[in-house]
């Protein structure tokens, strides 16, 4: 190989690497990140995208170059050079991807562990492992990533939390019931049942998920978190919201004809706003106890037709099952604590 050829190759590779590094950091493909878990996710995603873009450019570049450079001249019926293999090349393109995917595996494992709140994995645990995961085990292998994620939390947030939430270390438990085609959120130790989810900023939230009829999936794209809700099986999801705002809750598992309409909203509020909302809701519950209706504020994103539909669904569903939501809830408590 002559010198100028080497220079060209080095320059091209350099361009590919810098282009993919730049795109990996500036892709803008993801929605805003509104939870600590989402920030972790985004750095992993950007790294993987960087590698993917580099390989993409390399392969497509060689393909296009080959199509131009090695195109058969008209009338040339000869064959190409009979090269059958090249040991060094083959070792390289076996070893490099192997190292890359092992690195991806380790990095993903790390991020996943931290997303599971730095607790050790529940090796060999039973099926509803997500639930068993959090049985008070201390952060045994909390590594550097944990501190990273804490730094991301704004100082402002942290002080708010300290001022207003007494048991900061305990996650805020909320029960979530998925049913065709709505979400119902119950706040433990209160009688609040709503169709919208309110959580305070900066506090770890633990959702205890269950399903009334078929499988649904609870997904907040801005948190990068998703978990199926499965009838007869308790699952859970933990996250720490770190940006004020309203985000969609999307059902991501096909659950019937109106699957696309099964949406709700999560409101990430300051702890003060959250407390105010909680108080208000508790008063509402007390006032409307006679009606026996569940408090379900219409979600603003859906049109009137959809809201009506959801109300109708809630009523018909519970009638169809011959149970009211209260008994369903107690049922759920039984299953999730056994």
């Amino acid at each position: 190989m002559n010198k100028s050829k080497t220079i060209v190759i080095v320059v091209v590779l350099g361009l590919i690497v810098s282009a993919s590094l730049w795109y990996g950091q500036h892709n803008g493909l993801l929605p805003i990140a509104a939870a600590n878990e989402a920030d972790l996710y985004d750095s992993l995603f950007n790294s993987l995208l960087t590698i993917a873009v580099a390989i993409f450019l390399l392969v497509q570049g060689i393909l296009i170059y080959s199509m131009i450079k090695f195109r058969r001249p008209k009338g040339d019926n000869t064959d190409g050079e009979p090269i059958h293999d090249n040991f060094l090349l083959e070792i390289i393109w076996t070893a490099v991807p192997t190292v890359l995917v092992i690195w991806v595996g380790i990095y993903s494992f790390d991020v996943y562990s931290v997303m599971q709140n730095g607790r050790p994995m529940s090796m060999g645990m039973g099926m509803p492992a997500m639930t068993h995961n959090h049985l008070g085990m201390e952060a045994a292998h909390a590594d550097s990533l944990v501190s990273d994620s804490n730094i991301i939390e704004s100082a402002n947030t942290a002080s708010n939390v300290k001022a207003n939430v007494k048991t900061e270390t305990d996650p805020l438990n909320i029960d979530v019931l998925g049913m065709q085609f709505a979400w119902i959120f119950s706040y433990p130790n209160t009688e609040i049942q709503t169709s919208e989810l309110h959580v305070p900023l900066g506090r770890e939230v633990k959702l205890n998920l269950s399903a009334a009829d078929v499988i649904h999936a609870f997904w907040v794209p801005q948190f990068r978190l998703k978990q199926d809700t499965i009838p007869g099986m308790a699952t859970s999801l933990q996250f720490t919201p770190n940006k004020l705002g309203t985000y969609p809750i999307v059902c991501a598992e096909l659950c019937g004809p109106y699957h696309g309409g099964m949406r709700a909203e999560i409101f990430v509020e300051t702890p003060e706003q959250y407390q105010a909302w909680l108080t208000q809701e508790q008063e509402d519950v007390a006032n409307s106890r006679n009606d026996g209706a569940i408090a379900s504020a219409p979600s603003p994103e859906l049109s009137d037709g959809h809201t009506e539909f959801l109300h109708m669904q809630l009523t018909t569903q519970s009638q169809k099952m011959g149970v009211d939501l209260k008994s369903l809830e107690s049922l759920h408590h039984l299953t999730s604590h056994t």
Partner: peptide, 20 residues
Amino acid sequence: VGGLSGVMLGSVPIDIHLHD
């Protein structure tokens, strides 16, 4: 392209956001 997005999806945390 499909293979590269497949490797990304193979990573559990990435897949949890993108599944379905």
